[in-house]
Design a protein around this nucleic acid. Structure first.
Lengths: 269, 269
DNA sequence: AACTATGTTCCATATAATGGAACTCCTATT
DNA sequence: AATAGGAGTTCCATTATATGGAACATAGTT
């Protein structure tokens, strides 16, 4: 199954647990995905692996600190993940390059600014700037949302080459989050055509009622990294006109980030 | 080497990469620990594994999204870690139980409140409440500090059974962060005696100049989970007397958290 | 243009993961 | 209090997977 890959394959859907590591992460994923705490047997059913095998996998994960077990045999993700994530966030070059531009955009608009990276068909938010920073950060950073119904996500999708775009759309299962959510692949495709022509994506309360945004796509020269930036606000305050008035500076910010990436991440620094 | 462990072994020092998973995580650790970006050969030397082996391990980590490679072949921790951490943080039961008490303590003191969990000889900060929440959250949550020179850490250490304490102290390599940093094992041991008698730990600019705190230990009934809570402030504003005046409510908060743990995490809920 | 660093692939061998079944422990029920 | 059932744990022969050495490829350097 696993062809020796050139060490470059990112943004690729893994076929659910190839290799020892893959299986271990698959277990981690199951526990991460569950809403409530899971007990051993719950995980057993979700993985349908032999009991002995699963038990050892879990033991290993616990030993590595990636998993924690409570006295009642329910499992939680381990602290080591927080440790790793703190490092991942602080040292991420894309994020650090983008950061000053996010601040500038925030100052210009006074509204919340997001930076998100496309991963499969989801957006992972990697940074966020807001005025009243009373919202818990981790509750946002690292969170994911479906790409096809968020501004950042749609912007990012629009930066994909056509074949990649089709491939990913095929993996989306559409569902309505709000009355405004795009209903199907066709609607999304024509929306993306519009975004490509326009240079901006809009979220008009498609993911959450009362929340709208303007976004612009970001990508590295070789399109390995596909991302987006957005300015978000409450619909009652941010009219469509206001939103449109920010389209330009949002595109400019995205362009500036790409520029910095080109110079700072070039082979010859 | 790896004895089939009862599925309970947390807080245990792993002997650096046992099993396939362990080795993979060890690679991740090396990349996390480095200050700058690492290239393949750098990692190769730090692990001293055969090239073929390392190459495949890295490939697997990339495939799982735990690692990312830039065009210049430097490696970064992957986004998937952020994703996992967001879940880990939001669903952590200990943290959610403690959270209201942290807020109460913050309101009573007006200063920054920390919650940290002991992991080996380090403290991992899992929550933080501060008034002006203009400091980036992830820059704190998930961060680690040496247990022996922080308030939370010393408090946590004091909750360890004596044999465990000795064992862990043996793994500490002392170094001076500030003029006030405790110099050696002996100093730390007598400090811990004091903490046990008193019920509170103090950090008097031992880790960072200008920063001091009062802390109190937290532990689960079976002492599997060892943690601490602290109130922190700038030394110029928080005199030793003020600090001492918060000792009581800090202990009370810690006790309340343990209480809630006992009821909410009991086998029979 | 040749050289050297660095990264990548291949394959026989060694090692670790697998999975079935037996065992233990806890818990719920009578 | 005894017992049955479920849940978690251990063991070990078999099988699949990771290993590591060396050959190959590529990019950067003199």
């Amino acid at each position: 199954m696993k062809k020796s890959l050139p060490i470059r394959a990112q943004n690729v859907r893994e076929p659910a647990g190839t290799g020892t590591l893959g299986k271990a992460i698959a277990v981690l994923d199951i526990i991460a995905a569950s809403s409530g705490p899971l007990r051993f047997t719950d995980v057993l059913q979700l993985t349908n692996q032999p009991r002995g095998t699963l038990h050892r996998q879990i033991s290993n994960l616990i030993e590595e600190g990636l998993l924690t077990v409570n006295r009642d045999h329910s499992y939680e993700l381990g602290l080591r993940l927080l440790q790793f994530a703190a490092k991942a966030w602080a040292s991420n070059r894309f994020r650090t390059i983008a950061e000053p531009h996010l601040h500038r955009l925030h100052e210009a608009t006074g509204e919340t600014v997001h930076l998100g990276v496309l991963r499969n068909t989801d957006v992972v938010y990697v940074d966020k700037i807001e005025s009243r920073q009373n919202i818990r950060m981790v509750s946002q950073i690292g969170n994911t949302a479906p790409a096809w119904c968020t501004g950042v996500g749609k912007a990012a999708l629009s930066a994909l080459p056509d074949d990649e775009l089709r491939a990913r759309l095929g993996r989306i299962s559409f569902r309505k989050f709000t009355p405004n959510t795009l209903a199907d692949r066709q609607a999304l495709l024509s929306e993306i055509e519009f975004i490509r022509a326009e240079g901006n994506a809009y979220d008009r309360e498609e993911h959450e009622t009362g929340i709208c945004c303007v976004a612009a796509p970001i990508h590295s020269a070789d399109r390995q990294l596909i991302a987006g930036i957005s300015v978000t606000g409450p619909a009652y305050r941010i009219t469509p006109d206001v939103l449109r008035s920010w389209a330009g500076i949002t595109r400019v910010a995205a362009a500036a980030i790409m520029d910095d990436m080109a110079t700072q991440l070039s082979p010859r620094s």
